[in-house]
């Protein structure tokens, strides 16, 4: 496989995360919709799965989540946001797994190419999964608002860090790819 496809895939995934975690609203329209992450990841899975085979397993899940988030976005645009708790529970669980496996696979890519980002990605993945799970526990968050606020801040930092690490990994791979060509 040409490594440039893998580098492009890494970039797509990093940008996908930016779309997923950033929300810029114009009225009811989120101009950075979440479903973009799944579109970009699904497109990036093919080169990724040539390095890490299990990445291919994310394909149907990515499509499913893309469709679910697409519907959610569409309903919000037309002014009828989906507020079914059952839907939220299923989607939250799927997203947690999706993120966890995707980051595990990306760490595997970093490991195979000998980049130190592997450990960082795995650590961030673990922290993110734990934070998401803790936030789902129905504690009396209103009474410990500072704790919830703290969790939110940490989550924000972790998410930003994930994006930074992914872009950094992509950049390193890209530089390594370009270097022999220049020589």
């Amino acid at each position: 496989m040409d490594k440039k496809y893998l580098i492009h895939a890494m970039g797509s995934i990093a940008w996908g995360y930016v779309f997923f975690y950033l929300a810029i609203n114009l009225g009811t329209i989120d101009i950075l919709p979440d479903w973009v992450l799944f579109v970009m990841v699904v497109r990036a899975l093919e080169p990724l799965s040539e390095v890490v085979h299990s990445a291919k397993l994310l394909d149907p899940l990515g499509i499913l989540l893309g469709v679910l988030y697409g519907f959610q976005w569409l309903f919000k645009v037309v002014g009828h946001p989906i507020q079914w708790y059952l839907f939220t529970v299923i989607v939250s669980v799927l997203v947690l797994y999706f993120n966890f496996q995707l980051l595990t696979n990306l760490a595997e890519v970093a490991r195979k190419y000998g980049y130190p980002e592997e450990k960082k990605i795995l650590q961030l993945r673990t922290v993110q999964a734990i934070l998401t799970t803790v936030a789902a526990i129905p504690l009396p968050w209103e009474e410990v608002g500072y704790l919830y606020f703290g969790l939110a801040i940490v989550h924000l930092v972790v998410v930003a860090w994930i994006c930074v690490v992914l872009f950094s990994l992509r950049k390193k791979m890209s530089l390594a790819y370009d270097a022999p060509a220049e020589e």
Binding site: S54, Y85, L96, F100, Q101, I130, I137
Partner: peptide, 19 residues
């Protein structure tokens, strides 16, 4: 099965349990 998914398994179960 994808490797290293033990934590994800636990988190998914906890989230389902809470929900």
């Amino acid at each position: 099965y994808p490797k290293g998914m033990a934590l994800a398994s636990v988190c998914v179960t906890v989230m389902l349990m809470c929900g």
